[in-house]
Amino acid sequence: MSGSLLLQSVILGLLLGGLYALLAAGLTLYFGVMRVVMIAHSAFLILAAYLAWWFQRETGLDPLLSLVVTVPLFFVVGFVMQRLLLARLRPATLTMMSVLLTFAIALTIEGLLGYVFSGTQRRIQLDYSGSSLEVFGANIAVVKLIAFGLAAVALLGLWALMKLTRFGQALRATIQHPEAARLLGINTDRIAGFGFGLGLATAAIGGTALSLDSTIYPSLHWHWIGPLMAIIVIGGLGSIPGAAIAAMLLGVSQSLLQVPLGTTWAQTVFYIALFATLMVRPQGFFGGRLAQRF
């Protein structure tokens, strides 16, 4: 592998890793506030990508503008979904039944996308779709940089929200110790709803970023949920920094392996890492005590 190709792979991997990190942060939020493995996360991701594509096709405006609508919309949908659907499940069987429920939601979204937009592959064409920047001799497409920038800004915003605001404090308390949070007067049910809203908002941002440089089709979400779930297990369920580190590492590995192995085999790196992690350290590498029990 030549030096510049190597560099290019690493940079592409980091850019992809940024998107993975944002989406994995969303998955981690759901798991944190409610111990729910949210299978429909990537279905919402693809839904957002479709909305961005549709918005661009109908209005001719930049798909990034669709964020103005999709982010608040997804936040509300997430909140409502948690309050009306997931909160109804019995606590004793919550982990399993929530998997099934969110799986059912994923199937429904996939089916509706196929029904409304057909199974045809779609792609956004932009003026700057073809342009690229040269970084140390590596060619990087502008859209990928924009997508990464979007993900990075969103992650930073999420971090600031969690660390610097009262709401973030309540959210972290709920994640770490729901009973104690309740004793402190935090309405953990509402906070869980907001946590879901935030998680789904990451899917809206991620989907828009994805739509910039990817071909999308309804069943694409399966290609995302597998790697994302692998990332949160490897990072340690419930740990956002863990998920971000795992996302970056695996993004780069995937990108590097793509050169000698091709895209399909390179994707298996996620699953191999997942199995290896569970064999060696089932609680993941960066997780706290939450992870030990799930």
């Binding site: 299978i39 982990t95 399993m96 998997v99 996620f270 089932p282 609680q283 799930f294």
Partner: peptide
Amino acid sequence: VRGASFVIVSIA
């Protein structure tokens, strides 16, 4: 470990 990892592995 408990359920969550099992489900994730089963899909993976």
